[in-house]
Design a protein around this nucleic acid. Sequence first.
RNA 1: GCCGGCAUAGCUCAGUUGGCAGAGCAACGGUUUUGUAAACCGUGGGUCGUGGGUUCAAGUCCCUCUGCCGGCUCCA
Length: 614
Amino acid sequence: MSVDDTRLHAMRHSLAHITAAAVKRLWPKAKFGIGPVIENGYYYDFELDHTLSVEDFPRIEAEMQKIIKESQPFEYFELTINEAIKWAKEENQPYKLELLNDLKRAGTTSIKELDTNELGLSTSENKIDNVSFYKNGDFTDLCRGPHLEHTGQAGAFKLQKISGAYWRGKNTNTQMQRLYGVAFTTAKELKQYLHVVEEAKLRDHRKIGTELGIFMFSDLVGAGLPLWMPAGEQIKHTLTEYMREKEEAQGYKYVSTPVLAHETLYQRSGHTAYYAEDMYSFKDNEGNRFYLKAMSCPHHHMIYERLVKSYRDLPLRLAEPGTIYRNELSGTLTGLIRVRGAITQNDAHIYVTSDQLKAEFLRVLELFKEVYEQVGITDYWYRLSLPDFENKKFAGARDVWEKASQLIREALDEFGAKYVEAEGEAAFYGPKLDVQTRNTLGKEDSIATNQIDVLVPERMGLKYINAKGEEEAPFIIHRAILGSYERFIGFLLEKTAGKLPIWLAPEQIRFITVNQEIETITFTEQIMNEAQDLGLRISVDNANESVGKKIRSAELMKIPYIVVIGEQEIKSKQLNPRIRKDLEVSLNHEALEVDVFLKTVANETKSKTSRSSL
RNA sequence: GCCGGCAUAGCUCAGUUGGCAGAGCAACGGUUUUGUAAACCGUGGGUCGUGGGUUCAAGUCCCUCUGCCGGCUCCA
């Protein structure tokens, strides 16, 4: 961290204390949780006898301003752990008391470390004697610091939102009220940030998807079940075909498996043990329990069993735009990013020998890079998702997991990509490489994944005969380059603000007639026939409206090419395409022969290189 | 699932302390035959998300359910 960052961090953290101090003045019985710094600001958790709402914000902010005006020094002091516990009891602060008791017992307040300790691991070196406090005015908080010298140095801030949050992140604990604030050094930076947030809301895929007629939800169909409208289905179809072409060129074999499976399949794969409650299931009228497919892996494994006998059959790459359904908690559903069903995964399973594993893993990374370059997505990063070895939240042999993790690291180094490691994010069957991005509002999510399965082949008894004539279990790479088509389109809409590259645009050219004369209609129809023969997606607007109005409506639909047709065009047999501003295409606004124009657009569609300049 | 907020015409939204449900856009009809981001005039359209309750009277107050939004938890 730079000096400035450290200062900003201290300022935000000090504002968390100032917020807490203000809340305490307004609701003296407040019980305090924790108040850390987060990206762009901070939060503080409270338990209050009053339910906070945005209507309280002006009052709290006014109180904070008073505290800032008072320039209260942040005074540091230490207490012995027992004195501190006495303080928490006297102040009637049960949450602080819990933290102090953990410090006393285990030397840490980290839930993860505490869990580790409960597994009986050594803690003796963690014992601490003193804990630190900061006091400003009449507000004292258990705190590691650092802080500003005094409250008067606080920068520009704004209370942002209020939400519920489980104490210490455990859903069995009580839920506290979490007050979020944003804070910057200067008022100008704060204003800029708030402006960026407002702009981002305009790019929300839910807004764009509605405006462009891409998808919709219906209360009658139910939550988390998107309905794809014609424009959206066109995008999905184009992407699916695109991926199929890429994957088949890489030796993937497409398969198709049913959306139901008898429970024995998921029992054998081990999924029921982990996810039974998260899969939709029912009993048929003969008493058999079926699950709605929540992942395609076990189905593909059955095909593997039928196809593979020998090491000579490997690698086997099975791909499927697999449609799956997951019983997500209703509160987590968000547009296309988190849905319950009809998730179409860009799924594939690659069955390999241990010798082939790394090379195949690298091939996936290369395909990934190629695809993301072509669709024009650049802001993502790699996350190596590892198990949490300390908490033993993984199944199988530790050394195999470590080997697989190491193999991913080596592959990434060879591939030349940087990555972050994340403990506890692995799949139950192995470590994985996730591709992370942020949505328009800054929330992180995975868009792609490349996983090594070190567990299921063994568990399901998948085998092949190796060169020595012995039975051996393959490794499986589970990979989804576009993740799911639904989520991917969601991110694509946000990153492009709906201005899709020509090859993906549901409508590529719109013809706008100047009048409704028979010559105009006939001429337009001729051009449209020709365009359709070239496979272009087009439409005509010959409504009895002004040209300006029809252009406006086509622009709002983010259509790449708009072509006005009237007397001039009929006479000259030349078109003057109006090109969407963000597009970097070979055409400019010059008049062109009809043939030349249509063929050029058809080529742009094919090449998939005419990317938006966004 | 949990905490909090929200739900009025196809869309975006007004609707005062409970007292006859509104605007713009869209749609439809007419006039207009239009040249690169909104022509003009008119018409129709809502059991105010659902079910219940309080009241002389409910869009407005209370409860239920459903859905949406922001978080938390979860995410194979």
